[in-house]
Design a protein around this nucleic acid. Structure first.
Lengths: 114, 114
DNA sequence: CGCATGTTTCGACGTTCATCAAAGCAGAAC
DNA sequence: GTTCTGCTTTGATGAACGTCGAAACATGCG
């Protein structure tokens, strides 16, 4: 309860049950970080590309999302830091792949953990 | 391909297949908006509370997330606008409920659509 | 009526974010 | 070696976000 406990003295309405914090603080932060990594149309499109092609050259991503190459690289770096994709440099080009297990874990958290 | 098509004249590396945009622009925006609605620890905790209690008084949420009441109201309004929760005023207090179907649709989008 | 309490909205402040131009790096081809 | 090309990083800028205090709104009680 916050300011006053209504149940005790007022006749009307019980307000609520104690109401638990539910999920742990750290878990909430971790999940929020993952959601933040997907909270941009450009990054959603990138993930979609990667999931459907299982390997995409960085040079194609910029044009596919309609942004500059620098911006594309920024988004890719962000997704990489979130553990959602991996990129390996082969010769001149960098090829990116999605990590489907990571997405699956988000999906699972949404339906069960949370 | 972006600037130059490597396949034609250089001997090494084919760069990649054409690489399609995959998901539609509007879908990407819609999904990103939903993720943005969950991209904050406070809102994740709120959703968790609501899913586990199926009805929580607004007065409990502020303390549960450790923020001021004004901030809690802001987050709740944001979640409501995203269609993730509903709140109805009964007498003095406002009771919030999660909309599980909405979360399920996000989960489904992650595993199939995307 | 007026007063007290729960909730939302408003205004402001500091932080974070998306974006691009330009500079810096790393390979490949000459 | 130099030069070219793809990618990343840096710097800067404008927008969006989270946060809170204060004001406004709504409702119940006396």
């Amino acid at each position: 309860m916050t300011t006053t406990s209504p149940t005790q003295l007022t006749i009307l309405s019980a307000c609520c049950s104690p109401a638990e914090p539910a999920v742990a603080d750290e878990s909430a932060e971790a999940l929020a970080s993952l959601f933040k990594a997907l909270a941009d149309p450009a990054r959603v499109k990138i993930m979609s590309m990667l999931l459907n092609a299982d390997e995409v050259c960085a040079c194609d991503i910029a044009t596919a999302i309609g942004k500059s190459q620098a911006t594309a690289s920024h988004h890719l770096g962000l997704l990489r830091k979130a553990g959602l994709v991996t990129g390996d440099k082969r010769g001149t080009w960098v090829y990116y792949r999605a990590i489907p297990e990571r997405l699956a874990s988000i999906s699972a958290a949404l339906t069960t953990d949370l």
